[in-house]
Design a protein around this nucleic acid. Sequence first.
DNA 1: TTGTAATTGATAATGATTATCATTTGCAAT
DNA 2: ATTGCAAATGATAATCATTATCAATTACAA
Lengths: 146, 146
Amino acid sequence: MKSEREIFDNYLIKKNLRETPQRVMILDAFLKREEHITAEQLYDIVKKRDPSIGQATVYRVLRLIVEAGLALEVDFGDGVMRYEHCYNHPHHDHLVCKGCGKTVEVMDSVIEELQKRVAESFDFELMDHEMYLYGNCGDCRKKSRG
Amino acid sequence: MKSEREIFDNYLIKKNLRETPQRVMILDAFLKREEHITAEQLYDIVKKRDPSIGQATVYRVLRLIVEAGLALEVDFGDGVMRYEHCYNHPHHDHLVCKGCGKTVEVMDSVIEELQKRVAESFDFELMDHEMYLYGNCGDCRKKSRG
DNA sequence: TTGTAATTGATAATGATTATCATTTGCAAT
DNA sequence: ATTGCAAATGATAATCATTATCAATTACAA
Ligand SMILES: [Mn+2]
Ligand SMILES: [Mn+2]
Ligand SMILES: [Zn+2]
Ligand SMILES: [Zn+2]
């Protein structure tokens, strides 16, 4: 089982791209955090180690990380893309609290199977899907009840 | 069963808002089209009838239509919001072709039930959900095979 | 008719992301 | 090591859908 770093390096080689200190640093910072992270948040982290790094580079490297198969974009509908690890992280969807923004990763293999079947019934070959369940978490319900 | 126009008018009254020719015209234009429509597209339609109408007004009225419960926002992930009728239109999700952009409205009551159950299993009260199934339609598969 | 708060349209602002471009850098061939 | 050059970077401008601002207009109740 290859390491994420190896996967990334192999991707760079395959595409005739260079391994630069910025790319390595941004990848490392991304891998160190398990939570969903925005480009801006990653930029803030990386800036502490190297204040000369450019914001555009963070966006560019994040795209490479996705292309290399190490990250997925997640869109919670608030106008900002977030990124999550996807290497050795099994597929999941998201439960999002409308009150506090808390997210829970969920997976239901029956739903996954039915999604495939629905697509096929319309002669679509399912490639991908997004499912976001929005609701109120227990904590938020308690608070709003007073 | 009230008409959409009645629903809209009642909403305006309840909120102490005025019924203006612009609001009526934009609502009518929206209701006349059954397809998912963007603010820009709606603006183009309405402009033909009244070239003096402002783009900002279209955005504003579209928000009112949503608030009145007559439309829902749909986000296919291409950076533009679309709007669809939702009064007397049963809930559905979307199958989207990555090749040609064609969309199909789908509904699977078993999936819907399982979504509720998944949310409850994490002590969430499900309020809403989005599910987009992305794939390749039959036509696009034929074309790409040559 | 008049007062006034709501509404409008033009326009500027916003904010995340992308494009541009001059400068710097990595690397392979000499 | 030196050179040559494509790739990469960082600063900055541009993009583009959507919102905010604001002066002028309008709806409506008294
Ligand atoms: Mn996740
Ligand atoms: Mn629809
Ligand atoms: Zn919550
Ligand atoms: Zn297609």
